[in-house]
Design a binder for these strands. Structure first.
Lengths: 220, 220
DNA sequence: ACATTATCGATATAATTATATCGATATAAA
DNA sequence: TTTATATCGATATAATTATATCGATAATGT
């Protein structure tokens, strides 16, 4: 059925973008929308949007487009945002704690239910209603709670060890914010947050832009 | 010369990964390394790595590979990590404050020198040695400091307005963590952090994995 | 000294992803 | 009621990205 073919990664990256836009449109009271309109506003290609949207299974009407509510529902269902997944977080430093209070994750169907740290000084009850426990308790608790998503916000040199513990805990997918490659079995999915990649993009493109401008001004 | 052709985005995404690996290798005392070795350890294709690395301009030696120091230098130079860029951050909430204390950014050549917020309650001197000022001061100060990179960690409905102020401030590249599409002129580069895309990937791939397992167990 | 091997850079092929085109159809206008 | 038009889904083409192949070469072993 819907899962014979995996959704292409670029599509998966764009779908949330459409969703954000569609929620905004809905708030403005727009009932139906076409790919052409979305493409104009987001400065993307309408054919690409139509294809991406089509993957989620919805069918549109010529001349009108799609019903906004149905479209939102179709995408959210495809992305599994409609059923809330529980997650654990390991590493209650600045970034980890910030995530515990980051409300948007819930919108995306991700609920951090408990956090762990190896530093007993950081284990001071709850932060944003999420309990912070010692890492010793992770494997047993996570396994019993049947949680399958783990977030690593610990320092790089602890990441591999944490990943291995997570796998013991029954974690199947790891969201890794530590700048370290994780060596895991094939049946474990790792999503690297790659803040460094973002910065690389920014710095390189900035260089490309300014170099080009310099060249242009020199040739005049 | 090196900037005639823009570096492909996938390459830009992988290069930091190699860097992290190479720094680790260097720490272990490894002096020279081949693409084959890197590929094995990172579970990637050696040809792809060779091509990515080649883009940065370095040449290797048959049978030996590359000198680790030179390779690190070549990549970091290509990514502009060697010259530190100053950045401003707008939105001193949980995430914003966490970033002010996130040491890794400096390693990637990004230095957040000042943060702004519209909420006067959040303007309480320095956090992690970074001053937090009222947003009223942003345009003038940023312009005078000739800062070209801006980070948005404010709520979604403030993002567009902040982006416009940033452009007035002389900002050329924006790293946007707010879940909102930014409408900016062509000459401004926007990198969207897309935490929601990461979550979409995780949730969908998890679904694809478990669906497949279910199917397999049913057919037995 | 010569053969063997690992690796490089370059080039060729395959796969994926993006964009363009086209007939069909629902709505709106004449 | 008929014609015009915007949009859809499907299909075809182009561009980008990934992978495979191959001759050249530096190090190593015989």
């Amino acid at each position: 059925m819907s899962t014979i073919k995996p959704t292409p990664a670029p599509t998966l990256r764009r779908l949330p973008k459409y969703l954000e836009y569609l929620h905004e449109a809905k708030r403005k009271g727009i009932a139906s929308i076409s790919c052409t309109t979305i493409a104009n506003d987001l400065k993307l290609d309408s054919v690409q949007i139509r294809k991406d949207i089509g993957i989620t299974g919805i069918v549109g009407k010529p001349k009108t487009g799609y019903n906004v509510d149905e479209l939102i529902h179709s995408i959210e269902k495809h992305l599994n945002w409609d059923d809330m997944s529980s997650a654990i977080l390991v590493g209650a430093g600045n970034l980890g704690k910030a995530f515990l209070g980051y409300e948007n994750f819930k919108k995306y169907g991700l609920n951090i239910v408990v956090a762990f740290d190896k530093d007993r000084n950081k284990i001071d009850g709850n932060i944003f209603n999420v309990p912070i426990l010692h890492i010793d308790k992770m494997v047993d608790l996570t396994y019993r709670m049947k949680i399958h998503i783990g977030i690593i916000t610990a320092p790089a040199d602890e990441a591999q060890e944490i990943a291995e513990l997570m796998i013991l805990s029954g974690i199947r997918a790891i969201w890794n914010f530590a700048p370290r490659h994780l060596d895991v079995p094939d049946n474990i999915y790792v999503e690297n947050a790659e803040l460094s990649s973002d910065i690389s993009h920014i710095k390189r493109r900035l260089k490309e832009i300014t170099d080009k401008e310099k060249k242009y001004s020199e040739s005049n």
